[in-house]
Design a protein around this nucleic acid. Structure first.
Length: 422
RNA sequence: GGAGAGAUGGCAGAGCGGCUGAAUGCAACGGUUUGCUAAACCGUCGUGUGGGAAAUUCCCGCACCGCGGGUUCGAAUCCCGCUCUCUCCGCCA
């Protein structure tokens, strides 16, 4: 949610945000509606003020005739009051809907561009492996080794589902554990959170109303399956006014993640790249409303994830996401893409965002600052690791000519003695 | 799944038509006292929003006692609907 006062005072900021992010510019429409509403509210408030004071005098009137006259006068005001109430009942939700869809302005650092082709590579780390044999893809390797079973996954749950078996399952758990432990060692507080949550958590984190078709709806209980732990974790303190000493809050949560992938038909259908259910270790920061502070945390959470990638010795690059590719809610965003031999490309494995106060406003997530004033927090999040997508890189990069897979050093402590698969 | 209870400020907990934006206690903050700490005492102490001003710490108004609607001149208080929470029984990792 954006700050409507800022929009009134500096509409151009939001006109630019709409243009940058490729949203229809409804700034003027919103301002006109807001101005109407304010006029009606003022009039309504004046009537209510008069009624309130009249009501108090009625209570004190002794003479029945006087009392009756006063009550009649009061009743005469009700017509306009009702009329204004009806007008506002119609207009207020319209304004609310427009506000929910008004994009947050981007950081001036963010490259301006219309889509992912305008994203800017900030750095590449690690060497892309040059194979001295013909490398196989993760589907062939995993199926042959019996550690990935796509057919039975589809039998159980339809397309974009999979089963991890034996050492494949262990590898998956090993990556999650490495990521989780790395974050705990950095002082992040681990959380285990619900993955089927109420609509308000999605609305509050900005996933709804726009992304509703991407989310599984458990209709019997009117809950929604989260696509990321960002949703419950960022919502954890919604409606609260935090003490300054509680900030920054640094959370890490491993959770199941569910995505309907509606509209992605035909895209990345094979293998473990785009699936309906996966697991992710997510880091979330709730900090003070200071751009320098949240910017520092953005860089920190990107570095945290890079550290895990370096432990895994996987080559990756860091992309700064351009304005048109970052979505309504975000202020500044990076993706980490990991090299995947079968795709012959760096492919998205991580997504880091600084939301500024956008989510905090929707969640009513606040704190009391040094001067005792109530402020909205800033919120940020980043993937630490998501599996099985990361397994594509691991399996393919660590394959040997004979179809076996070497376990990276960093994962060995989590593999119960397995040093090689196959 | 069956039965019942409840939703009030940071927390606990009164109020059950006008004097209640809300008693009281705790917590928090400021101060007095004290060799220090504690205690005691005094004071302050919700959020949002509209307007005014010597302009974020002052003044006035409005809204908020789970949410929405109704009755009434007037609702935290009465009525209706919804949501949520808790307790007991049953089932259960």
């Amino acid at each position: 949610m954006i700050d409507i006062k800022l929009l009134r005072n500096e509409p151009d900021i939001f006109k630019k945000a709409c243009a940058d992010k490729g949203y229809e510019d409804k700034v003027d429409e919103l301002l006109a509606l807001d101005s109407d509403i304010r006029k009606f509210k003022q009039e309504l408030q004046d009537i209510v003020t008069e009624k309130n004071s009249a009501g108090k005098t009625i209570a004190k009137l002794k003479d029945p005739a006087e009392k009756k006259a006063a009550i009649e006068k009061m009743n005469s005001m009700k017509g306009r009051e009702k009329e204004l109430g009806d007008i506002l009942a119609d207009l207020d939700p319209k304004l609310e809907q427009m506000l929910l869809r008004m994009p947050q302005p981007c950081s001036p650092e963010s490259p301006v561009g219309k889509d992912e082709s305008c994203n800017v590579e900030r750095r590449q780390v690690g060497q892309i492996r040059k194979f001295d044999f013909e490398p196989k893809d993760h589907i062939e390797l995993g199926t042959t080794l019996g550690i990935i079973d796509l057919e039975r996954g589809v039998k159980l749950a339809g397309s974009r589902n999979y089963v991890l078996k034996g050492a494949g399952c262990m590898l998956h758990r090993a990556v999650m554990n490495l990521a989780h432990d790395t974050m705990v060692a950095k002082g992040f507080e681990p959380l285990s959170v619900p993955v089927a949550t109420r609509e308000e958590t999605f609305m509050g984190t900005g996933w709804f109303p726009e992304g509703k078709e991407q989310v599984y709806h458990v209709t019997a209980d009117d809950l929604f399956l989260v696509g990321t732990a960002e949703v419950p974790v960022t919502s954890l303190h919604s409606g609260e006014i935090l003490d300054l000493e509680q900030l920054p809050m640094k959370y890490v949560a491993q959770s199941l993640c569910f995505r309907r992938e509606a509209g992605a038909a035909g895209k990345d259908t094979a293998g473990l790249y785009r699936v309906h259910q996966f697991e992710k270790v997510e880091q979330v920061i709730i900090c003070k409303n200071e751009p320098a502070e949240s910017e520092k945390w953005l860089q920190t959470i990107v570095a945290n994830s890079e550290e895990v990638m370096q432990k895994l010795e996987l080559p990756y690059r860091v992309l700064e996401i351009c304005t048109g590719d970052m979505g309504m809610a975000k202020y500044r965003m990076y993706d980490i893409e990991t090299w995947m031999p079968s795709r012959n490309a760096y492919s998205e494995t991580h997504s880091a965002s600084n939301l500024h106060e956008f989510q905090a406003r929707r969640l009513n997530l606040r704190y009391r600052d040094e001067n005792g004033r109530v402020q909205f927090c800033h919120t940020l999040n980043n993937t630490v690791v998501a599996s099985p997508r990361i397994l594509i890189a691991l399996i393919e990069m660590y394959q040997n000519q004979d179809g076996s897979i070497t376990i990276p050093e960093a994962l060995k402590p989590y593999m119960c003695g397995i040093e090689k698969i196959g």
